[in-house]
Design a protein around this nucleic acid. Structure first.
Length: 469
RNA sequence: GGUCCCAUCGUCUAGAGGCCUAGGACGUAGCCCUCUCAAGGCUAAAACACGGGUUCGAAUCCCGUUGGGACCGCCA
């Protein structure tokens, strides 16, 4: 019998939760949920100069927005310094690690030199055999890598990957200030937290042999590894700010739904036959590591946008109102304390959701429903408002003011009669009317708009155009 | 430079030696629907990087070439 699956997402708080990190988190989360295992959030903040509280908050905020809930943590490595220290001492005592008195400047110089000579910038191991401390220097601690043989990483996605130990150098596991480094504490933590599967970005594959050697030195069982392919920008280099928004929360602000981003991210590197749309439940049911691809994927904002429109269209108007409200406030369409009748606004949103790709678009389209005074676009007026169409609008006004109900069905019937009386096509009346009541040449079906707006406001807008023209 | 990884339409991908005349999705173009815009439906253009093997048969297996990426820190 196999022990319970335990996985973790271990971001370093040196920036916001970004697209790549979010996908790593998602895959870990899905793997845990699929296997009824445990998902752990661990903050890797040993680099104190670059880690901040704000970024920890930002990462948590991003995880919460995406709905990636964790079962343990967030653990913080800075809370666990004593644990690492004891393991360093153990390695030191067992002669698997040693003090290194080289200064960062010296190391940097040697590295530069090696690179210039076209040699691998590998630590030369000069402190390895040192018997006495070097006075006046505070040492770092290095791990003693085996210098012969090979280390094999058995990866769930890549298969067996071999590294010549000769290529690996004695890396620093504890800085001279006493803080441990990544390649060391990641192992200690994964062991301590009984992680069964390490699912992380491809960029860590080269670190894995080093980590495996630490496992061995500590005499611990090695977890399963799964290295995910990278996410690239449109120019096929590592996704970065140059390629546009990379932070998860930036997508929230641009009016994306979390399920759209999640659905997009999961298909970057993972597939299930021809299926494109997945609910969260479906993903949990269907996710597996076998179907993760090996090659890097280019991030494609167009497809994300398509998914977003799909999910907006699939949402109920009631939910969309809740989601769009902050955007209405931000766009200055309503105030924080503005109360809107939920039934009415739902009806309005129902007419717009299939033509909105983001919540920002939805908010802006809602403008002419919510605001009392609308602005008529200059071009629209020029094209559709003239003596002839004003005449039509007068007839429309007459017709509408005589109507009791304002349901789109009834309106449509009445308009059919009107246009046959006028002997024109519907579009000849509908477009001027659309411009008069929405200010634009584009809107949901005109009868739906009238119905949402109601008789009183429709007549007011009509009068304004008829009188001022 | 060294090490490691990767390689199917522009992009995400299906493809487990014959089911491939290479399928789906985004995007693009056209048509249908239509009061505008969408949504929806239909159609089209669009790919196995190249060269060698293995095999009766290769997108699929092997080798090489080329191209891309990652890592080589007292960052993670």
């Amino acid at each position: 019998m196999s022990s319970k699956v335990r996985v973790r997402f271990a971001p370093s708080p040196t920036g916001h939760l970004h697209i790549g990190g979010a996908r790593t988190a998602l895959f870990n989360w899905l793997f845990a949920r699929h296997n009824k295992g445990v998902f752990i959030l661990r903050i890797e903040d040993t680099d104190r100069s670059r880690s901040t509280e704000e970024y920890i908050e930002a990462i948590i905020e991003g995880m919460k927005w995406l709905g990636l809930d964790w079962d343990e943590g967030p653990y913080r490595q800075t809370d666990r310094l004593e644990i690492y220290k004891s393991y360093v001492n153990k390695l030191l005592k067992e002669d698997n690690a040693y003090y290194c008195y080289c200064s960062p400047e010296e190391l940097e110089e040697r590295r530069r030199l090696a690179l210039a000579q076209g040699k691998p910038p590998k630590y030369d191991g000069r402190c390895r055999g040192l018997k006495e401390p070097v006075p006046g220097r505070i040492p770092a601690v290095r791990f003693k890598m085996p210098q012969v043989g090979i280390t094999v990483v058995d990866d769930l996605i890549r298969g067996k990957v071999s590294f010549d130990n000769e290529q690996l150098d004695d890396f620093i596991i504890m800085r001279s200030d006493g803080t441990p480094t990544y390649n060391f504490c990641v192992v200690v933590d994964d062991v301590d937290m009984r992680i069964t599967h390490v699912i992380r970005g491809d960029d860590h594959l080269n670190n894995t042999p080093k980590q495996i050697q630490i496992y061995r030195a500590l005499n611990y069982e090695i977890p399963k590894f799964a290295h995910l392919p990278m996410i690239l920008g449109s120019d096929k280099t590592r996704l970065s700010k140059r390629h546009g928004a990379t932070s998860v929360m930036a997508y929230k602000e641009m009016g994306y739904l979390p399920e759209a981003l999640l659905n997009y991210l999961v298909r970057l590197g993972w597939s299930y036959k021809d299926q494109e749309i997945f609910s969260k439940e479906e993903l949990i049911e269907k996710f597996n590591i076998e179907n993760i691809g090996k090659s890097a994927a280019v991030f494609n904002p167009e497809k994300l946008l398509w998914l977003n429109s799909h999910y907006i269209n699939a949402s109920t108007p009631e939910r969309l109102y809740e989601l769009v409200r902050p955007f209405l406030i931000k766009e200055g369409i309503i105030k924080e304390d503005t109360q809107i009748d939920i039934q009415w606004v739902s009806k309005a949103i129902a007419t717009l959701k299939e033509r909105s790709r983001t919540l920002v678009e939805l908010a802006n389209s809602l403008r002419y429903y919510i605001l009392e005074d609308i602005e008529i676009e200059q071009e629209a007026r020029q094209k559709f408002i003239n003596e002839k169409t004003i005449g039509y609008l007068r007839r429309v006004r007459e017709l509408l003011s005589s109507m009791d109900g304002f349901e789109s069905k009834a309106l449509e019937e009445a308009f059919k009669k009107l246009i046959s009386e006028l002997g024109v096509k519907l579009s000849e009346v509908a477009q001027p009317l659309r411009v008069a009541i929405t200010g634009k040449t584009v809107s949901p079906p005109i009868f739906d708009v009238l119905s949402v707006l109601g008789k009183e406001r429709t007549l007011r807008r009509l009068d304004r155009v008829i009188k001022t023209s």
